Computed example of a mutant assay.
Amino acid sequence: MRLPVLKELSAIDQTPVTSTAPPPLARLARMLDAWLLVLLLGVYALAAFLPTMGILIRKQVVFGNPLPVVLLSAMLLSAGIGIEAREVRHAIGSWWQVLIGCVLLVAAPWLVVSILGLGSSFFPPGILAGLALVALMPSAASSVAWTQLSRGNVAVNVALILLSTLATPLLLGLFWDGGESNFGEAGLPIISVGVWIIPSILLGVLIRYLAGEARIAAIRPMLKVGSATILLLLNYINASVALPEFVGNFQPGILFVLTLTVLVTCGSVFAVTYLATSWLKTPAPQARALWFGIGMKNTGMALVLAAIWLEDSPLALVTIISYTFTQHLLSAAIHQRTLPADAMPKQD
């Protein structure tokens, strides 16, 4: 039986589809939305027991960069195409909320990780490095779905995603020192990743402007299917590096510490965001957008970077994988508890 929240996810996009986008593709896009967590579980199982293909794909180089980085840029290009001009204009009116969100997006998780770092000897190597990398990541594109479901202000959420993604190369350059290891060569990958991140988003925005809203609406299902496919492929490629060793050398104690640490970190970020929006008396729609926009991190990007910089620390990648599921599960719980009565799905 499908969870109620999965049924709601499948109904997010009710935009009419023109004849250029065949109904089967639109149905596939909705199915991917509804079953994304289940598909991710399947991808991780495949990576754990059949990692050969993922490792082979990961070794490919395109345009002088690792294939996962190029795939990430394609996903960001799609995200840029999905940014609507009217949402950007609406977000300008809430600029101070977006700026506060950008600060909390990094400060809240970084503070939690720093506090945990005081007892670093207690944690198995790799966990804190993975969490530190997650802390510097931008807001997740999937947070828009939860914002829509909870009747939040999508414009604020989209602006938060855009600004935080553009700021990511700068944040990595300022704060990332390789986590628990010494990465003297880290500057080069950061510059390389930055070269892909910013132009990809801006190119997507330009394509949307030149193509027009009608054409973009027609291909929206195709964009969603493409983004979901890239997301699943990236997770398979990067998980193929970490999960086989973790499963082959399974230690319940490490799994317990990892799960508890990720839950505390992710839960604390949601809690800090809730307290901040309550203290600032932020209107409900904007507050919901900030809850999900700040609480959910782009762990897909974190996995790509961890596979490059933390290849010798598989537990860091497993930590990021765990964070992916934790943030979605917490978002589902928050959505169910805070959903306004008029947003509840009507029964036929």
Score class of each variant (00 low, 15 high):
residue 33 D to V: 00
residue 302 A to N: 09
residue 17 V to E: 04
residue 85 A to W: 15
residue 43 V to M: 11
residue 82 G to I: 00
residue 233 L to G: 10
residue 116 L to K: 11
residue 188 L to K: 13
residue 128 L to S: 05
residue 76 L to E: 03
residue 149 L to C: 08
residue 71 L to M: 15
residue 280 L to M: 11
residue 205 V to P: 00
residue 120 S to K: 04
residue 173 G to H: 15
residue 90 H to E: 15
residue 209 Y to A: 12
residue 147 T to R: 04
residue 160 L to Q: 10
residue 344 M to P: 00
residue 61 V to Q: 13
residue 184 G to A: 11
residue 237 I to G: 04
residue 53 M to H: 07
residue 69 V to A: 12
residue 25 L to A: 12
residue 311 E to Q: 13
residue 102 C to G: 03
residue 130 G to P: 08
residue 11 A to M: 08
residue 173 G to D: 14
residue 256 F to H: 01
residue 32 L to Q: 07
residue 45 A to E: 02
residue 282 T to I: 06
residue 94 S to M: 12
residue 281 K to Y: 07
residue 37 L to N: 10
residue 15 T to Q: 12
residue 304 V to C: 06
residue 230 I to S: 06
residue 292 F to S: 04
residue 319 T to A: 04
residue 288 R to W: 11
residue 237 I to N: 10
residue 197 I to M: 11
residue 2 R to H: 12
residue 62 V to G: 02
residue 167 A to D: 02
residue 203 L to T: 15
residue 343 A to M: 09
residue 273 T to P: 08
residue 304 V to R: 07
residue 34 A to F: 02
residue 158 V to N: 03
residue 26 A to M: 07
residue 9 L to V: 11
residue 195 V to G: 07
residue 88 V to E: 07
residue 283 P to M: 11
residue 222 M to G: 09
residue 127 I to Y: 12
residue 275 L to G: 11
residue 76 L to R: 08
residue 175 F to C: 13
residue 295 G to S: 03
residue 1 M to R: 09
residue 261 T to V: 05
residue 79 A to G: 06
residue 122 F to P: 01
residue 339 L to C: 10
residue 57 I to L: 15
residue 47 A to T: 02
residue 170 L to R: 09
residue 67 L to W: 06
residue 46 L to D: 01
residue 306 A to Q: 06
residue 176 W to V: 09
residue 221 P to W: 05
residue 133 L to F: 01
residue 320 I to P: 06
residue 143 S to W: 02
residue 30 R to E: 05
residue 238 N to E: 15
residue 74 A to E: 01
residue 75 M to E: 09
residue 328 H to I: 08
residue 87 E to S: 08
residue 287 A to T: 04
residue 188 L to Q: 13
residue 286 Q to M: 13
residue 38 V to N: 09
residue 227 S to M: 11
residue 285 P to G: 13
residue 106 V to S: 00
residue 166 L to A: 14
residue 70 V to Y: 04
residue 172 L to H: 08
residue 111 L to A: 10
residue 77 L to R: 01
residue 31 M to V: 06
residue 294 I to D: 04
residue 23 P to K: 12
residue 72 L to Y: 08
